[in-house]
Design a protein around this nucleic acid. Structure first.
Lengths: 335, 335
DNA sequence: TTGTACGCGTTATCAA
DNA sequence: TTGATAACGCGTACAA
């Protein structure tokens, strides 16, 4: 039971008003009494009750972070976790605390995102892993708290979106493959209904078409998991129309594909080059270190916090990717 | 600006007391009026202000989680993040929210752990990555909020510790190596001053001594990182006294060591077997899939939440490890 | 069953 | 510069 300003006021024989002002560094108090108050506060072990304060100030210095689509495969090595780290750092710098919510399948106690935030009087909200087909997405559109989401854009809403610039990243990767002499380039995409997948495919198609080498048949669809990368690589191989290079929409799929190729004695990168997306930790630690389009998680976290604390609305913020060249691509071999 | 119980009371022509009781499912209200109140509350978009409520109930339904020693190498593939996921889940089930704190180097705004918790009237605290030489550890000993820490035991304190049963895990691993015929078994430990390192070495030494095959010279000291595993593996090799099997105190060190061996043409597991500790995601995805002592992060997270919510004090809770056999160990080759 | 009234700890307003 | 005092939204004795 720590002391309150009332206790301090009584102790020093002043009003709570004076104590409050002194403790918050506001004017209206002589430096003399301020110092006295600070001293007593320290001695009595005073800690401010932010709950009580927020009741009158209407602000809690709190950012709500929703960590969604967090299934078991995901939680380990998920980029959301890395972004969360960056968010924590930035929030810390700005003097904000973080309330962390999860919502695997059903929302907690039947409460909605908005209710959760309102009941804690949260100042701003960040979504990680929000899906377009989330059944509770509609309520977010009307929310009057600043909200930002990573990688998910909701039209006609106030929700800010931060994403890695797909255009820039994919073009860098394809330029690279092109420069290595590859002309028969396949794509290993994520599931079609996901927004990112659509956008990435679009960029890929545009680029390839411009170069005059787009081939619909070389586009395969997985679901971002390693397993699906493995499966699609098998299909590719069995189609007897294997490209010389593959652009995968996620590192995990890239790694899965590589695993299949290696098992079948198809050497990477000597016989087939593979580019990934994300720069998850495994891409650096796997045997064939992955060349990949890296997402700048630090920047993403920072931007997420910044835009929401600056009360921006409906902005689209693109973060520059970092193209990371490792060992999974090689000059196209002479046939 | 959402509605308050006062608004509802006015709307329906009852007292705030009645509304409060009805909303909280307490007795003293006829089911008739209760239903009426619930309906109106819904219509008016009422959401409870937990800040105000906590002011009188003295409880916030909040668990503070401190995510410490979170450097860049750490955040990716760190076991703390996996445990955090489990904590979230369990807290969710029990109806608690999580306030997440970080404290990389200096504490936020010069505030101490305790101040941070007190000011938010946090009900319970969990530490992930707490180090024994943390300069602020002393204040934790006197804290009157239930606290639990993963893998860090502080003597003569009320802090609960949850850890993976080192004895059980390491013995399983060594039994396994023994059964494969290995007698010259080395240890790749973490830095000596870390508590876990000491305990793991102790278990290792006891086991080996009992078998009559302990050899001090075969114990190397890294710092849990992949890099240090690589470096120590080099030292081992250059000592010209390479064991036939190595028990590493972390997967990352094991992977680093394997990387060195493979580079030097020393085949794993044919020429040297390696066992890891943790079961981080990379151990499953690396080319040489790691045989390792897996920590049950789900259970650990659950126990962390449970013991702290049940207000336990100074308990030591051991979670059973899961020994996971993959491909990094083999029967000892005949010389 | 319902209502009154107080207190929780803080900030803000206004008067002294 | 200082001090009463009224909010803030809610829960809860206690009285009706």
């Amino acid at each position: 039971m720590s002391a309150t300003i009332k206790d301090i006021a009584k102790e020093i024989g002043l009003s709570t008003a004076a104590v409050s002002k002194a403790l918050n560094g506001k004017g209206g108090v002589s430096t003399e009494t301020r110092e006295e108050i600070m001293k007593i506060a320290k001695r009595m072990g005073y800690t401010r009750n932010t709950m009580a304060a927020s009741l009158v100030t209407k602000t809690t210095k709190t950012i709500g972070v929703f960590l969604l689509s967090r299934n078991r495969e995901n939680v380990r090595g998920n980029i959301s976790m890395e972004i969360l780290g960056a968010i924590m750092e930035e929030a810390d710098v700005r003097g904000y605390d973080i309330v962390l919510y999860t919502a695997n399948n059903d929302l907690r106690n039947g409460k909605t995102y908005v209710e959760l935030c309102k009941s804690r009087k949260i100042d701003a909200v960040i979504f990680l892993g929000l899906k377009l087909d989330d059944p509770h997405i509609s309520e977010l559109i009307e929310i009057d708290i600043p909200v930002a989401a990573f990688d998910t854009f909701i039209e006609n809403s106030n929700i800010n979106m931060i994403e890695t610039d797909n255009n820039a990243g994919i073009e860098m990767a394809l330029d690279y493959l092109w420069s290595l002499g590859h002309r028969k380039i396949g794509m290993l995409n994520g599931y079609r209904k996901a927004q990112v997948s659509q956008r990435r495919h679009e960029v890929f198609k545009n680029y390839m078409t411009k170069k005059g080498i787009y081939n619909e048949k070389l586009v395969y669809e997985g679901d971002y998991t390693k397993k699906s990368g493995y499966v699609e690589a098998q299909k590719m191989t069995e189609s007897r129309n294997l490209p010389t290079a593959i652009f995968a929409a996620s590192d995990m799929m890239a790694l899965g594909a590589i695993e299949y190729f290696v098992e079948k004695g198809i050497r990477v990168p000597e016989e087939i080059s593979v580019v990934g997306y994300d720069d998850v930790i495994m891409s650096e630690y796997s045997t064939t270190k992955l060349t990949t389009i890296g997402q700048d998680v630090l920047r993403i976290g920072k931007e997420l916090v910044r835009c929401v604390l600056e009360k921006q609305k409906g902005k689209i913020i693109k973060v520059e990717p970092r193209f990371i060249i490792r060992n999974s691509c090689a000059v196209m071999k002479q046939e």
